[in-house]
Design a protein around this nucleic acid. Sequence first.
DNA 1: GACCAGTGAGAAATCGATTCCCTCGATCTG
DNA 2: CAGATCGAGGGAATCGATTTCTCACTGGTC
Lengths: 347, 347
Amino acid sequence: MGKKATVRDVAAAAGVSPATASRAMSGDPSVNPEMVRRVLKASAELGYSANVFARALRTQRTDTIGMVVPSISNPYFVVAVEAVEKALADSDRSLILCDSHDSVETESARIDLLVHRMVDGLVVIPVSAEESVPALRAAARDVAVVQFDRIAEAAGTDFVGSDNIDGVRQCIDHLRERGCTTFAYIGARPTTSTAAERLRAFQDLAAQVHTPDHWLLLGEFTTDWGQAAAQRMLDAAVLPDAIVCGADVIAVSLLTALRGSGVDVPGVVKVVSYDDSNLGMLTVPRLTSVHQPVESMAREAVRLLDHRGRHREAPNRKSVFTPELVVRESTGGSGALRSSTGEARLR
Amino acid sequence: MGKKATVRDVAAAAGVSPATASRAMSGDPSVNPEMVRRVLKASAELGYSANVFARALRTQRTDTIGMVVPSISNPYFVVAVEAVEKALADSDRSLILCDSHDSVETESARIDLLVHRMVDGLVVIPVSAEESVPALRAAARDVAVVQFDRIAEAAGTDFVGSDNIDGVRQCIDHLRERGCTTFAYIGARPTTSTAAERLRAFQDLAAQVHTPDHWLLLGEFTTDWGQAAAQRMLDAAVLPDAIVCGADVIAVSLLTALRGSGVDVPGVVKVVSYDDSNLGMLTVPRLTSVHQPVESMAREAVRLLDHRGRHREAPNRKSVFTPELVVRESTGGSGALRSSTGEARLR
DNA sequence: GACCAGTGAGAAATCGATTCCCTCGATCTG
DNA sequence: CAGATCGAGGGAATCGATTTCTCACTGGTC
């Protein structure tokens, strides 16, 4: 347990005052280059590295941002986390990640935890469009907050997401091109903004005059639900031409269940989904899915955080990115339309 | 941006000194109950909560432990993270998670980061049995370290893992019971202890006098490798009765590729794997896989950390848990043997 | 009635880095 | 050449909570 060197140690070794040592190391231009050299040398020799807490206590900054996601076992959120981490690496800041386990209470606790750790900013994928509001609103008083992917409107924070209406439209257009006329939707209950928008878009664009109950199934963003939904569809006599899923986690187990019951996909039913996660590459057939430009979204999120860090009272901003449908075999493959992209990224 | 209350504020509001306020809130028995009451009341009214950094600076503790995993897109590691988080929740501590992206350099940087953040302990799934040693060894001088799942022996830290020899033995026994006589192994190069142990166990237990090259394939723990390996097996004329995979991430894409080429699993080839992750539940057929008692392992890891926190110089301890094979359809289903367990946990 | 152990609580030191303020010497201006 | 200006660098305060260290006061004992 080697006791770590302090500024004083470095200062002493370099023959200067702690004040000068500190200035030298932070690149203050008013320090003689010769002194800087001596300080840096001493610092290197002692293996000095500043105490994070002392610095944070004094400067009120931590060069750390926090992120709260509903579940790290959803691959889409994992991709989002990795993208944010990458976007931060450029500016040499790090990420603290918390999992809210799809619970409003846990989410609130995690947000509090991070705020008390004085993160410089907070990226949150909120659990609920309504119930996440109080915690987010409170957090936004103390720190820069940006909601990611989903939004709890009333929280009044910045937001980065993608255009769900357009994504669903691309799905439907693609399916119509492939000759589909009857559509079902398997998604999540509209407690999150994404679920609500995708559902509404589907209803506006594809729902028939009379949509049978078992063609509009709303549950959760889980594989369990995908499986249960598949069962309900199979229990009914007639299958639609196509099924639009609200997320890959739903689609993969739905697909597996359908095929397990001998339904030909894409021959009899075509399936499209949302998120373009690595999961969709593991099924047979591979999933046609809506890809969101997560990397760009993450960079934008960091930019918004930085901006708000400087302008606390600026009006809220919303950045909405356009997604793109990636066509694979679950709707008959790329055919003459466009080439399917993306390799499995799972490790 | 509400400025947060300090001990002084609380003390003033309660009409006592900061010292007494601090003592009152930390449950020091030498404080008059009446004072305690007043302090707690004031504290509650002001919405006081101690500044994490000031406290950490003074006490040299953070009630936080750090965890470094090779990749959060591997579902097995995600399960490990969740288990550790859960084990910590009991004692009201939190987890900081870092991803080393399977890189020794990143791993070293992350470990440093966490050590400087004065985490009270560190749980690491090392990237390499050899190259992870220096960083771990250095970290262990400053903080309690436990290696999880894999071990870099020479680092000289505590360890929690499972018995890979026994796990592979269960696989082979099961396959033999099902009538298999020729076996192939698709795993990772033995740069990690788990990969090495599983490989050696396979060789000891199942390798034939002459194992064709394409029946002993070593790559990485990725889906890409599973797919590539499948291709190599298919290119050769003869298939084995059974394939043992070193991890589910390998097995799922292998399985998908085999089935895509018309190979009947489990009819022609049976497949067993390792990790029992949710991925294995999404394939058709579902994967027979070795389940490790991750929750128990995580609790043990936390116990070891706590123990070392108190006894810096105690000899290193290794806790090895016994895994259990979960039989599913990729080897012909549970049959009369035992019931398959586990539901998909993906969200 | 005087002395001592014991107890509760405040003043001040501490953790380590940063930064404001001030000094001292040097250069510049009139 | 005196006085003003500038700039490098040191002393000390600061961030907020905890933890000595100390002291005043209580009750008990001889």
